[in-house]
């Protein structure tokens, strides 16, 4: 069972505002989901062998700069912008 404080910690890590209804529903569902995922814990498996990748390191392209999107294109979809920068409320007091 996930405690209320653990749930709140997870919500904070996830940076999500949740409604009262969502909190109740998620708490109820979450224990089912965790129980489902925790089936992996019973498996006997070599934890040292966990990495694989489909990419061969020798296939990597050269690390050279190439033309990319312009600054105004990159920030075009930002909800608030000024002089090519993102605008956010003051962070330092």
């Amino acid at each position: 069972m996930l405690s209320d404080s653990e749930f709140e910690h997870l919500r904070n890590l996830s940076k999500l505002e949740l409604s009262e209804g969502e909190i109740n529903k998620f708490k109820a569902d979450f224990n089912d989901v965790i129980a489902f995922a925790s089936q992996v814990s019973k498996a006997q498996v070599d934890l040292t062998k966990s990495y694989f990748s489909s990419i061969k390191m020798e296939d990597l392209r050269e690390d050279m700069p190439k033309p990319s999107l312009k600054q105004e294109e990159v920030i075009k979809n930002a909800p608030n912008k000024k002089n090519g920068c993102f605008v956010v409320p003051r962070i330092m007091e």
Partner: peptide, 8 residues
């Protein structure tokens, strides 16, 4: 554990 199982 899941990554190790994925490898296996």
């Amino acid at each position: 554990k899941a990554r190790a199982l994925q490898y296996q």
